[in-house]
Structures are given as C-alpha cells and as structure tokens.
Design a protein around this nucleic acid. Structure first.
Lengths: 152, 152
DNA sequence: TGTAATATAATGTAGCTACATATATTTGCA
DNA sequence: TGCAAATATATGTAGCTACATTATATTACA
C-alpha cells in the first residue's frame, strides 16, 4: 500500500514532507511486525535490542553507558530496561569493582537461549523482506537513509 | 553518519537486517528532530499529527474512529490524545447527535493558530532535508519504502 | 590534599503505545 | 419486536521515551 492510501492523505506539500511521514510510518510498521514476534518470547523491541548488544559483549560485561551508546533510542532509560530484563531472569547485574559508579551487566544462559530462539524467527521475517526488495534495492535504501541523516 | 557508526555495530548479517535497523534508527532521528520543534509549542508528535488531521476536516467534525484510521500509529489511543489536546484548549469535543456512540472532535481557533506556527518551523526542517537529498532521491526513497511494505 | 567539576547511574513525571477489557449505542435479523 | 452481534469510545495495566533531577563516585587541578 502506498503511503497516501495507508494514512488516507491525498497529497503532500513536497516529496520531503511525504518522506518524513513515510519513514516514520514504515518504521512503525516494521516495529509492529517485529513486535508480534517478540511477544511470543515476552520481550519488547528495546529488550531484544539490549540482549543483542549484551550478547555482542559476552562474556564481557557491559556498562549502562555502553548500552545507551549502542541503543537505537539514545535517551531511553537503559537502567530501567536492564532492571526489567533482570526481573525476567535474562541478565545479571552487579557493581563494577574497578569503578564503583558503574554497573556490570551480563547476559546469562537463559538470556542467550531466549535470544537464540527469537533470532530464528527474526531471520524468517527478513526472508519476507527479501520477497519485496532485491539486495540491490535494500542497499540503495540503506545508502539513501544514511545520506538523509548527513545533515545532523 | 552511516548506520554502522551510529549504533557502533560493525556488521550486519544481511543488507535486510541492516535495513530494518536503519529505518527504525532514521525514524527515531527524524522524530527527535521534529520533537525539538514541537516542544517549543508544548506539543508532541502524535498531538501535532492529530491537529493536522483535524485541520484537514475543518470546519467539519472528526470522529475518534476517523482519527485512528489516519494516524501513523493505528493503535495509539486517540481518545486520550484528544483529551490531552482538549485540556490544552486546542480542540473541542462534544457528543455526536446523529450517533450517540460517536464523539465530534473539532480543532478550535487556538488550535489552528498553534498549528500554523508549528508548520512554519516544520517547513524550515524540510528545507534542511532538501540539502541532504535531491527531490529525485527523495522520490526514490519513497518508492522503495512503499515497495518494502508490499508484503503486508 | 581538598574541593570543584565531571561522570555514571537511578529515579520522578508526563505522555506515549500495545493490549485487554468495559460500557453504551446502534444494527441486523429470526 | 426482541435480542444477539457489531460498532464506537473509554479505561486499566505494563512498559516505553523524553526530560529533569538526584545521588554517588571519580577526576582534575589550584
């Protein structure tokens, strides 16, 4: 469905106004698609992303600061998401000995298992995307999105 | 900044995995840029979008259902956002006479004024985007995003 | 060395989404 | 007509972002 139909807006002032709406709308659509998948594992998107970052560090610990730097939402409150994951028994958290301001967060065995399972389903989702776009088109999209953000 | 640097992830499994992250990240970036703008007017993105839909209907009333259909987040709770806007004195709400289940929501004078001002700043933001991409590239991006969503 | 500046993490608040559920009204049809 | 199904909206809950503030630990340097 083209964006005009999707949100029932007949026309946009410019191709750029339309682009902003289109990117946000497509992001929401992707997040919803992924969200359906995560709910199976009682995870949210930010929780899944945090687990992925932690697995990237495994078996080293990550500080909350490191997590924030690598998250998609920089100002999301990593502390609270870590706490949620800890309550679910997917990560361990303890004070950092070298710098007592810091906290060492490590994904544990259960966390790695859940992540592994979710990743399988995620790979399936990406296969669906491959039906819609060729690799070349996906590349082109990636490059254009990167280019848009050069004004930052 | 390319997406790999932005979230400090060295490589992705595929161009498609990268694309999902890139779209969500770019959306967050746009929302943040727009958000800075809205905060000047004590508005949030959903509130701004709702006001725009209401102006599209003006001087006719919109039902909550119509608002939901046209919002970027279909399952956002339009009722509550309308209530927030009403508290801020930007919209009026009254029971619909023809169908008493429905509610008539109309943007008022103050709402139209605030929207007008915010739109000015928004136009400036779009000018910045034009520095990053040509109209042709924006078009290309729009088409690729629409194509990605054809699997829905 | 002592103190101010900085860094790290946690927490409080408003508003948001996603989902489930509740309530009231209208419609469909046996 | 009467009642079940459908429709429209509101509300409760968990978890989220954005922002401001706080608490604590470390660093810089006069």
């Amino acid at each position: 469905m083209i964006i005009e139909e999707a949100i029932q807006q007949k026309k946009f002032k410019s191709e750029f106004e339309k682009l902003v709406v289109n990117i946000i709308y497509t992001s929401r659509w992707l997040e919803y698609e992924e969200g359906k998948l995560f709910r199976k594992y009682d995870l949210t998107l930010p929780q899944y992303n945090l687990l992925r970052i932690l697995r990237g560090q495994y078996p080293k610990a990550a500080s909350v600061n490191l997590l924030i730097e690598r998250m998609l939402d920089k100002s999301s409150n990593a502390s609270r998401i870590v706490e949620t994951l800890r309550k679910k028994g997917l990560v361990d958290r303890k004070a950092c000995k070298a710098d007592r301001r810091k906290v060492d967060v490590i994904i544990n065995k259960k966390g790695l298992e859940v992540l592994e399972e979710a990743n399988h389903d995620m790979a399936e989702l990406h296969k669906d995307h491959q039906k819609a776009l060729t690799t070349k088109e996906a590349e082109q999209l990636n490059n254009l999105l990167d280019k848009l953000r050069t004004i930052e």
